[in-house]
Design a binder for these strands. Sequence first.
DNA 1: ATAGCTGCAAACGATTTGCACCCGG
DNA 2: CCGGGTGCAAATCGTTTGCAGCTAT
Lengths: 151, 151
Amino acid sequence: MLSEEDKFKEYLESKNLKFTPERQAILSRVFANPKHFEADELLVDLRLNKLRISKATIYRTLSLLVKSGLLREVIFGERHAHYEQVYGNEHHDHLVCNNCGKIIEFIEYRIEKLQDEVCRKNKFEPESHRLQIQGLCEDCTKKDDNKIKKK
Amino acid sequence: MLSEEDKFKEYLESKNLKFTPERQAILSRVFANPKHFEADELLVDLRLNKLRISKATIYRTLSLLVKSGLLREVIFGERHAHYEQVYGNEHHDHLVCNNCGKIIEFIEYRIEKLQDEVCRKNKFEPESHRLQIQGLCEDCTKKDDNKIKKK
DNA sequence: ATAGCTGCAAACGATTTGCACCCGG
DNA sequence: CCGGGTGCAAATCGTTTGCAGCTAT
């Protein structure tokens, strides 16, 4: 399998776009540790690593990373996007704790299979899907009588 | 089963809130025809029915309708919310066409059951979930060679 | 009477864009 | 060399809020 960088270069070339130092820096920080993140967190992470890149460029590059298939947007229901790596990772879905915000990933092939079946029945050609279950994680179920704190 | 209006009144009373003409008007238009809509469309629909209600009030009321369990937010991945009725409707999920925007609803109990199983395995207490599959609907698959038009 | 409402306009917050200058291929 | 890239600041756009004057209960 190609490295993330090669995969990205491949995409950029195919679109006649350039592999700039800014894009290189963003790519490397995004793949430095595998975790969900949002645009602002990436900005902070870059700053911590002495990389001053403008917000505009961050947004423009994230969009390219999504188009190239290296990232995907996840966890909506807030008014800003979250991202996670896709390249080289198995597809998974999310349990999102409404109290502490914890995110548990899970893989369930039988659900995927049923989704395919639904698509077939509706003659629908799937490209991607997104399943998330909101609720309370184990820890938060225990302190259930606490008020739900809004982040 | 209570009417939507009674259900809403019940909720408002329980929270010491008032059933105003504006809230009544919004409620009735929202339940006038069962379809997905967004805040702006509701505003237009109200205007067409000679009901001048400010955007602020619309947003405030939609939020109450969601809290009262009469509506839910669906179809994210855009930067604005869509709503649909829940009260009296069976839970369902969505196929969203990336080309024409058409939305097909489906109900698949086996998926719901597997979700419960996933939650049990993770000791997670589910409150709600959201599943959507993006892709191309039957019609758009046929004219597949057309460029994807961005709305 | 008095919480709670409403409309208006200003504030917000994430994201996008216009622009003048810069640089990778 | 030149088409695409970058930072900056201003612009968008859906949504939220402060405020002053209303109104349901």
